[in-house]
């Protein structure tokens, strides 16, 4: 079971307190009526699904109830960093380089 640190509660808790919420930083289109079918497909269905670092959302469902973001390695399942909603997405390429050092 994963151990996850909620950035709001500041504590490490077992995964069963959390609910996964998929890839992070997929912004709802500002003007939905202007979207082409391709753009809708991209927004609704296409996913990065990387083998490596993934920016993803979690929700502390059985704690504070809040959403937050995390960068996790999908091969080792290790969390690289966890950050609050609204904070900028870390530079994944830099994290890869740092991890290699």
């Amino acid at each position: 079971m994963l151990l996850i640190t909620c950035p709001y509660c500041g504590v490490e808790r077992p995964e069963i307190e959390f609910r996964y919420a998929g890839e992070a930083h997929i912004a709802r289109p500002a003007e939905p009526s202007k979207l082409t079918d391709e753009e809708w497909a991209e927004y609704l269905y296409m996913r990065t699904n990387p083998k490596g670092l993934l920016a993803e959302r979690w929700r502390h469902a059985h704690g504070c109830g809040r959403f937050f973001n995390a960068i996790r390695d999908t091969v080792s399942d290790r969390f690289v960093t966890i950050y609050k909603m609204g904070e900028a997405k870390p530079d994944l390429e830099r994290l890869v380089v740092e991890a290699a050092q």
């Binding site: 079971m1 994963l2 995964e15 069963i16 996964y20 699904n49 993803e56 999908t74």
Partner: peptide, 13 residues
């Protein structure tokens, strides 16, 4: 399991 992973393993729960 609930999260994306290529680990070919998952949580024991």
């Amino acid at each position: 399991d609930q999260y994306i992973s290529y680990s070919q393993t998952g949580g024991l729960q």
